[in-house]
Simulated scan of single mutants.
Amino acid sequence: MQQVDKDEIDVAEVFRNIGLFFNSIKKRIQYVFDVVLSHKLMIIGITALGLGVGYLTYSLTKPYYTSSMTLMLANIRNEFIEDQLNKLSTMIGEGNYEVVADRLDISQASAQQIKEMKFSNLDQDRIEEDSVLTGSPFRIELSLYNRELFESMEPALTNYLENNRYFAKQKRIKQRQVESMISKLKGEISSIDSMKTNVGSPRGPVNGFVYGQPIDPTNLYKESILMYKEQVELEADLENLDNVEIVTGFVPKLLPTGPSLKRHLAIGVGLGFIVGVIVALNLAKKRRKLLS
């Protein structure tokens, strides 16, 4: 029985302490509210000063323009592209514009107009965690101080990615293979065309056999067409050897993306009000010490 009474007393003590804690918080809030009311003119003045500072910082902040483009990869792991873009983004963030200009093959003045660069894989959420993302489209978001540079930044970024030593080597190997096949097909088609000419317009005695087999003009025409189709397909592949292709380019921007006037004013007002309250609390504290 005594143990039960002791437990009841302990619980009552806990609730009493909780009540005292919230009561003290309530008193502190009431005290701050009273101080704000008694120094409201000063706080309003400091808040207005913060508003002015916010507008001043907005006026001094250089406007920038943000746009994005979407690129499609060949059969390349996206992490390779991410590594290249991450290095470029790091150089931009560090203000290493001389190297950025060299890598993108643009002037240093143009490189200095780059504020920020971000990139993301569009299919990142569609694959399993242990899978490798390959040949997926990705987006590059670029912020520039000069909106007229967006057009020149498209080829600059794609060439930067294409000029990767590994990618360039693989592209040259595949290009030589395709060109060799096209050259061979052209020779074969030319040979068949000569045979078709001889069969259609023979000069001199013709026995109707080639290497012991009878000549069938129909088969010659079919073989010629098949080879020509293969040649056309290879020539199309030759035109599409780039490892990176632009799907949608940067959209020209007329209005700046930032800075935001509302955001600057809101921050200025908020900071001004906080500073005003802190000053008012300090004044009230000093006054209480003098009175005591």
Score class of each variant (00 low, 15 high):
106 I>D: 09
148 E>R: 01
93 G>W: 00
78 N>C: 02
214 P>G: 05
207 N>P: 02
142 L>T: 07
88 L>I: 00
166 Y>W: 14
128 E>F: 10
17 N>H: 09
60 L>I: 12
249 G>A: 01
60 L>K: 04
232 V>R: 06
213 Q>Y: 07
32 V>K: 01
258 G>T: 03
30 Q>Y: 03
191 S>C: 04
8 E>K: 15
211 Y>N: 15
150 F>C: 00
253 K>Q: 09
251 V>C: 00
167 F>S: 15
103 R>P: 05
291 L>I: 10
2 Q>E: 15
27 K>C: 04
84 Q>M: 06
179 E>V: 12
161 L>E: 15
199 V>A: 14
265 L>Y: 06
193 D>Q: 10
24 S>V: 15
264 H>P: 03
53 V>I: 11
148 E>T: 09
234 L>R: 01
174 K>W: 07
20 L>G: 09
210 V>Y: 07
72 M>T: 04
65 Y>W: 06
141 E>R: 06
25 I>M: 05
233 E>R: 07
212 G>E: 03
229 K>L: 11
167 F>H: 13
138 F>V: 11
28 R>T: 11
193 D>T: 12
285 K>L: 12
145 Y>F: 11
242 D>S: 13
166 Y>D: 15
231 Q>M: 14
157 L>C: 13
205 P>N: 14
114 I>H: 00
75 N>F: 12
210 V>T: 08
46 I>P: 04
239 E>D: 14
23 N>Y: 10
111 A>Y: 04
132 V>T: 15
91 M>S: 12
117 M>Y: 01
121 N>M: 06
50 G>K: 04
115 K>C: 03
193 D>P: 03
3 Q>G: 12
97 Y>P: 10
255 L>T: 14
131 S>H: 05
51 L>S: 05
220 L>H: 00
203 R>F: 03
284 A>K: 08
85 L>D: 09
128 E>K: 13
261 L>E: 00
203 R>K: 11
229 K>E: 12
55 Y>T: 11
84 Q>H: 02
267 I>C: 14
243 N>I: 07
104 L>D: 10
35 V>L: 00
281 L>Y: 02
87 K>R: 08
22 F>A: 07
54 G>R: 00
48 A>W: 02
37 L>H: 03
179 E>W: 02
71 L>G: 02
103 R>C: 10
104 L>T: 02
258 G>V: 08
13 E>W: 06
248 T>H: 03
182 I>Y: 06
39 H>P: 08
183 S>D: 09
232 V>P: 03
100 V>E: 03
222 K>W: 05
75 N>W: 10
91 M>Y: 06
192 I>P: 02
268 G>S: 01
86 N>V: 03
116 E>S: 14
102 D>N: 15
255 L>R: 08
230 E>N: 05
51 L>Q: 06
